[in-house]
Simulated assay, not measured.
Amino acid sequence: MTTPLQKALRYKFLSRCLAYPNEAFIPALREALEKIEANRDELLALVAAFEREDAETLQAEYTRLFLNGYPRTVCPPYESVYLEKRMHGESTVAVQAAYAEWEMSVEPGLIDHLATELEFLAFLASAESLDNAVSADARKASERFTQQHMSRWTPQFTADLQAGATLDAYRLLGEVMENTLTPLRPKP
C-alpha cells in the first residue's frame, strides 16, 4: 500500500469481502476494486476465486466459517470473541470509544466485527489523505487502533481462516488479509 488513499481503498475492499455472499457480493467487490492501483493482482485473483464458486457454496462456507459452524465456528470475526471468548466484552467497549473519538456510531452488534474495524481504518486513512490538520491525528489514531486492537487478534483470525477454509476463495482472503495487516503490526 502506497498512499493513505490506497490504504483506505484496500481496507474498504477487505471489509466488503467479509459481507454475506448474496447477489450483490461480487458486484460490490468489483466496485470496491475499481480505484485500487497498488497490488491489484492478488485482489483480482481473490475476486476471480469468489466468482468461480456458486452462491450456495459461498453462502454455506461463509456461514460455517463466520456464523455458526458445527461443532464450532471456525473464525468468528469479532475482536471480543478472540480476546475474551465472548461477545460484547471489554474490548468492544474500547473499540466503541475509539470510534466515538471520531464521532462515528456503529450498530451495536457490529462494533468489534472485523469488517467494521477495517471500515474504521479506511475512514482514518481517508482522513490522513486529506493532507491537512486532521491528517496527523488520523495517522496517530490509526497507529493506536492497530496496536491496541487489530494486532492483538487479527493474526490468529487470519491463521484460522487460512487453516479452516475449505474453499480457495476464503483461504486466499485469509492470505490477502495477512499480507495487508501484517505490516501494520508493531515491531517487537
Rank of each mutant, 00 (worst) to 15 (best):
residue 5 L to Q: 13
residue 6 Q to S: 12
residue 12 K to N: 15
residue 12 K to H: 14
residue 14 L to G: 08
residue 16 R to M: 12
residue 19 A to D: 14
residue 24 A to N: 15
residue 27 P to W: 08
residue 27 P to G: 11
residue 28 A to L: 06
residue 28 A to D: 13
residue 30 R to T: 12
residue 31 E to N: 06
residue 36 I to N: 14
residue 37 E to I: 06
residue 45 A to M: 10
residue 46 L to W: 14
residue 46 L to P: 13
residue 47 V to E: 14
residue 54 D to K: 11
residue 55 A to N: 07
residue 56 E to M: 14
residue 57 T to Y: 05
residue 59 Q to P: 08
residue 68 N to L: 09
residue 69 G to I: 05
residue 69 G to Y: 07
residue 72 R to G: 08
residue 74 V to Y: 11
residue 77 P to T: 03
residue 77 P to Q: 02
residue 79 E to K: 00
residue 83 L to K: 01
residue 84 E to R: 01
residue 85 K to D: 09
residue 88 H to G: 00
residue 88 H to N: 03
residue 88 H to L: 05
residue 92 T to I: 01
residue 97 A to G: 06
residue 102 W to T: 02
residue 104 M to I: 10
residue 105 S to T: 01
residue 106 V to R: 00
residue 108 P to Q: 04
residue 109 G to E: 07
residue 110 L to R: 02
residue 113 H to M: 01
residue 114 L to Q: 00
residue 118 L to W: 07
residue 118 L to M: 12
residue 123 F to A: 01
residue 123 F to M: 09
residue 124 L to H: 12
residue 130 L to R: 14
residue 131 D to G: 08
residue 135 S to Y: 06
residue 138 A to Q: 01
residue 139 R to C: 12
residue 141 A to C: 03
residue 142 S to D: 04
residue 142 S to Y: 09
residue 143 E to M: 02
residue 144 R to A: 11
residue 145 F to I: 01
residue 162 Q to F: 04
residue 165 A to G: 09
residue 166 T to G: 13
residue 167 L to G: 09
residue 168 D to F: 09
residue 168 D to G: 12
residue 177 M to C: 04
residue 178 E to F: 09
residue 181 L to H: 06
residue 185 R to N: 06
residue 187 K to S: 14
residue 188 P to V: 03
